[in-house]
């Protein structure tokens, strides 16, 4: 017994060590954002230093701030829209038998997995005439291409896993299919809805390619702003690190808060059972 406890402790230590190695690149960026320019270029690298928030302060005073607002608005709107449109559809797909279900699934999966350039070219060409280039509306619509399919894909697997007996009980009590869906199924699918919404938010927030091509100044999102900044401030690594940290911060906070659902959301749909 004692030996097993030892083994266990050893294993834990090994895993912690591995985790640190895995996280090192990420932690390195974090600490860099708190170093002065001189400390960043110091060799050997300083592990103990006096942290400074200077880089954060300077970039927050630039146009960078606006890109943050853009990112947040676009991500939230596109998530809301995708959920609103996608959840009922996913429910129907889960409960009904459609003859075209196979091709439908394929269509949805392809929309989700297609390389962004496949949509960027036609959207770019069409937006020129529609006046949607460099607008938040334009981005919200483009993000539906992957988020709507994501919602259908994930929610369907959640609904598939939910027992039907409760809805059926409601029907017996005289509820219509719609009432059954709204009053019984949706409240029970809270975790699934949360996981899906957060994944949508993440994908929209993290998008780089669409925003790179479809925005210029007015609707520019945070990831594009960071890259612009990086191209401009070639060697200002402290500011680049601070910018990168700011962009990933909301994502990290969100992921941490809903970590349990997130794991489920990320793996659901690929696994049945």
């Amino acid at each position: 017994m004692n030996r097993r406890a030892w083994e266990r402790r050893l294993l834990h230590a090994a895993v912690v060590g591995l985790v640190l190695v895995i996280l090192a690149p990420f932690l390195w960026l974090l600490q860099m954002s708190l170093k002065t320019q001189a400390d960043i270029f110091a060799f050997p690298p300083k592990l103990v230093f006096v942290p400074t928030l200077e880089h954060y302060r300077t970039i927050w005073d630039t146009a960078f701030r606006r890109s943050f607002t853009n990112s947040a608005i676009v991500a939230v709107l596109s998530t809301a829209l995708a959920m609103l449109l996608g959840v009922p559809g996913a429910y129907a797909l889960s409960r009904a038998r459609f003859r075209a279900a196979g091709s439908l699934t394929l269509w949805i999966l392809v929309s989700r997995m297609a390389p962004p350039i496949a949509f960027t070219i036609p959207y770019f060409l069409a937006y020129r005439h529609l006046g949607l280039l460099d607008t938040r509306t334009g981005l919200v619509i483009v993000y539906l291409t992957f988020n709507l399919s994501l919602v259908v894909w994930l929610m369907r697997s959640f609904f598939d896993a939910a027992p039907r007996s409760l809805e059926e009980a409601a029907w017996i009590d005289g509820a219509s299919p719609g009432q059954g869906f709204v009053r019984i199924v949706l409240p029970l699918s809270g975790p699934g809805l949360a996981a899906t919404a957060i994944l949508c938010f993440l994908y929209a927030w993290n998008d780089f390619f669409f925003a790179l091509i479809l925005t210029r100044t007015e609707a520019m999102t945070a990831p594009v702003a960071v890259v612009n900044f990086m191209n401009y401030e070639g060697w200002e690594w402290g500011k680049i690190a601070a910018g990168g940290t700011l962009v990933m911060l909301p994502v990290l906070v969100f992921s941490f808060v809903v970590r349990k659902f997130l794991v489920r959301g990320l793996t659901a749909g690929a696994l049945r059972g």
Partner: peptide
């Protein structure tokens, strides 16, 4: 170990552009 699993989420939820910046530094 179950608690540690969450940590592994970090690389994959980071904005890809930040991942690129991290490696650019390295």
């Amino acid at each position: 170990l179950e608690a540690l699993r969450t940590v592994f989420l970090i690389p994959m939820v980071l904005p890809p552009i930040v991942v690129a910046i991290i490696w650019k530094v390295l």
